[in-house]
């Protein structure tokens, strides 16, 4: 057997908790990559992110400034980490990291750190505030949405929508409202936390499906795996899911990729209504926490993403195993306080 090359890859989203970040799943996929070996650098924001303490997966972890600290602070920390670790690839896994990292992509490339992210235009366009325009532009069914900025605009909702409606925050949070009073309550609650606008969205009844995949930036589908959630936690996260073979979902994914020329990993949240029509509810501009299912069915998306980031040619995956399930579980690690102390005071472990 020839010796595989070794890549140093930084991965964030180590919060493998009940509403998990994708980092740990991505790392598992990278460890199983056939085309390279890895040294994994964990990027953590808080000192209790479980991935920090998973030494069989993560070689070294650095604490990192929040995106809200600004591009300069992020770059400063990154330069420090890079001076020690000589990173080949950086995979940011939080939505909120994407804006600064897309801005930094060229700078990082000059430093020798490769990423494979959507363009700023793609990132902005798929934002839920812009979902209506997105659907129109690319001919994809989306639930009717309206962004509202003040309570006064709520009164027109009854004439434009039928209840129930979804009340969504700009970045996170969503609640179902069955009447105007409830819209008001959710509007106040969500806007207090995430600011304006608030998005009112048609509630599509039906079954939820998800697709994860990878676009090469030229409109080609490199990977796509559809999944149906089997068990959903009270936070709305899949705790179990199964790979399925729905041609129309794959067609929709191909259409999304060929139309937008999406670059990078993604997750599409879809709803199938009683008439068997698919609606695109949301586009997550990164790999999902259940990405390891894709590996399990034969499409190692993180590995392919790393190769694309390095500018290598990747053959598209053409098949996957249908009917494979993932069942998530919780695992209590035993951690010495010493380790917690080190990451808390030195910001490295």
């Amino acid at each position: 057997m020839t010796k595989k090359r070794k890549l140093t890859i930084a991965v964030s989203g180590l919060n493998a908790v009940d509403s998990p970040g994708p980092g740990v799943a991505v790392i598992r996929a990278l460890r199983e990559a056939e085309s390279f070996d890895v040294r994994i650098i964990g990027i953590a924001y808080e000192s209790l992110e479980p991935g920090i303490f998973m030494h069989n997966l993560v070689d070294k972890t650095y604490q990192f400034p929040y995106p809200s600290a600004g591009v300069d602070a992020i770059l400063e920390r990154l330069e420090y980490i890079h001076s020690i670790e000589k990173l080949d690839v950086f995979i940011p896994n939080f939505d909120s990291e994407l804006y600064p990292f897309i801005k930094l992509e060229d700078t990082l490339k000059e430093m020798g750190i490769h990423m494979f992210l959507p363009t700023m235009e793609q990132f902005e366009e798929r934002h839920k505030v812009n979902l209506n325009e997105f659907g129109e532009k690319y001919g994809i069914n989306v639930p009717k949405s309206k962004a509202i900025h003040d309570l006064g605009a709520i009164y027109s909702i009854s004439s434009e929508f039928t209840y129930p409606v979804l009340v969504k925050g700009k970045y996170y949070d969503a609640a179902v409202a069955y009447n105007m009073e409830q819209v008001k309550t959710h509007f106040n609650k969500i806007s207090a936390k995430w600011g304006y606008p608030i998005i009112i969205q048609e509630f599509v009844h039906g079954t939820e499906f998800n697709v994860t995949g990878l676009g090469d930036g030229f409109g080609n589908t490199i990977a796509a795996v559809p999944m149906r959630k089997q068990y959903i936690t009270d936070k709305g996260k899949a705790w179990g899911g199964i790979s399925i073979s729905d041609k129309r979902m794959l067609e929709l994914t191909d259409k999304f990729l060929s139309q937008t020329k999406w670059r990078g990993g993604f997750e599409l949240e879809l709803m199938k209504n009683k008439e068997n029509e698919f609606y695109l509810l949301e586009i997550n501009p990164r790999m999902p926490a259940w990405i390891y299912l894709a590996v399990g069915v034969g499409q190692n998306i993180p590995e392919a993403l790393v190769k694309l980031a390095l500018g290598e040619k990747v053959e598209p995956f053409t098949s996957y195993k249908v009917g494979k399930m993932f069942v998530r579980y919780a695992w209590d690690m035993i951690v010495d306080m010493e380790e917690f102390q080190i990451i808390s005071t030195r910001g490295e472990l």
């Binding site: 306080m337 917690f340 102390q341 080190i342 808390s344 005071t345 030195r346």
Partner: peptide, 14 residues
């Protein structure tokens, strides 16, 4: 500790 970490064994707080 020299690095400034304090642990309170009675309460479990750090």
């Amino acid at each position: 500790s020299d690095s400034g970490f304090v642990f309170n064994p009675d309460t479990g707080e750090s």
